[in-house]
Write a protein that binds this DNA or RNA. Structure first.
Lengths: 247, 247
DNA sequence: GCGTTGGCTTGATCCATGTCAACCACAGAA
DNA sequence: TTCTGTGGTTGACATGGATCAAGCCAACGC
């Protein structure tokens, strides 16, 4: 690298930090097995970053859609509102995951995306992603896989909501979180929940009291240790076994 | 058209009948606003048809994935099986809709697709669809919209399973079916259900007895007339009103 | 320190839906 | 025609989770 003026160097560093090619989430997010030249073109596409404060919306249902978002850091929930005021959390998203795929279909977002902690996302203009994915085949295929994975995930949630009882649902939820934290290099056994009991309940189709009781029961039975939002998983196979207590 | 030998003519007719360009479902399915030349290329892609008998599988969970399927005629359900034997119907699909999108993610199907009546589908080899959609932009965009629509639809089902009570679920289900029949040119008010009460229940997260009771209640209240699988909707707004009876 | 607030826990009670069981209706086979 | 099987309906009863209500805990501002 040629010597640079200190200020220039700082600017160039910050640019590097923003780039996909240098992002430690690149395996979870869009790019995968690209050539250097292709990575550069991707960096160019994903150049806009946005910071979202805890509690703020990344987008709202009804707003026009033009970008999908890759979460660089932080934690989000998405929820859908019915006219009568009822709402349901449709998912929790963490670093390395994508947000906004629902907006492609109508060109309007169909749910709200809300940060559960201070977060940072990369905006990916969708029409430009389509252009680029025509040229980079692996990008195209990877994107199709990501969309398909979302459909499969939703089927899993439908299964959970349609056939599982309260404790099974919570066990499945905890195991899923644990697995996702693990694949991001965090502890699989110890983590902080970013969402309230009410949000968990909404996601699982339960009332917050039921969620709370299930947490207490799991603790009594020695499967987990709960202290507010701090969770330690003591017995993974115990939790897995719980998932077969069908009615 | 040049004069042909009778046998040739018959062959040529059957080819025409198979083609996308001549399929009366073309607005619902993949192609949309394509040039003649583009339509021909699509016809070439979607050349394999398969007949599936009532009760037979189009594909099974775990099988390798290589094609998605456009339903040309008939009616399907998809379901997911848990190891412990529980299963859940994840959707009902009718003519003009696509099947198999879940398989893209892992290159294996993740659910079973079963014909609820004698049906006919067009197989669309996925890798060739990807090639063609790189070249035909409207095809690419339409396909992305279709996948996204599937995600939005699943969110709707999650909402239904997570926040609605039994009668609301069934009302939503009937209204959805009615709307889909309508958009295919069938009566919005009168149709035959292709699935059993048990399958409806599985889809809605209810037991078949609950579904049956809800049908009876709707009939008592004059919203519908039920005779086995034959349904007449007498009062659409009544059903819609039912959907706001939250707890 | 103290009070306030939001989130969490726990208990008592209720009710929607599941469960179990009997019976009915239609379709297809004999 | 009767027989048989599958799917549908209906009733009586059981129960998981919702609801209502009280109190607890930790964080934060004063």
């Amino acid at each position: 690298m040629p010597p640079t003026h200190p200020l220039n160097q700082e600017v160039s560093l910050s640019v590097i930090k923003t780039a996909c090619s240098n992002c430690n989430l690149r395996e979870l997010c869009l790019p995968l097995g690209l050539s250097l030249e292709e990575l550069e073109r991707l960096d160019d596409l994903v150049s806009t970053r946005r910071r979202i404060k805890r509690g703020d919306h990344l987008y709202r249902a009804g707003e026009g859609f033009d970008s999908i978002y890759a979460i660089r850091s932080g934690f989000f929930k998405t929820d859908v509102l019915l006219e009568d005021g009822r709402d349901q959390v449709t998912g929790f998203q963490m670093a390395g995951e994508l947000l906004g795929l629902d907006g492609i279909s109508t060109e309007h977002h169909t749910c709200n995306a809300i940060a559960l902690e201070d977060s940072e996302v990369c905006a990916i203009p969708f029409s430009r992603l389509e252009v680029l994915s025509r040229e980079i085949h692996t990008l195209q295929h990877h994107f199709h896989k990501v969309m398909s994975r979302e459909i499969v995930r939703d089927h899993g949630v439908m299964m959970l909501l349609g056939t599982m009882r309260a404790e099974e649902r919570l066990a499945a939820f905890l195991l899923n979180l644990s697995q996702r934290f693990t694949s991001r290099g965090f502890s699989h056994a110890e983590f902080y929940l970013r969402m309230t009991r009410e949000e968990i309940g909404s996601y699982l189709g339960l009332k917050l009291e039921t969620v709370s009781r299930a947490f207490s029961k799991f603790q009594e039975e020695g499967h987990i240790a709960v202290q507010q939002k701090h969770i330690r998983i003591l017995n993974v196979s115990g939790l897995k076994a719980l998932m077969n207590h069908q009615r």
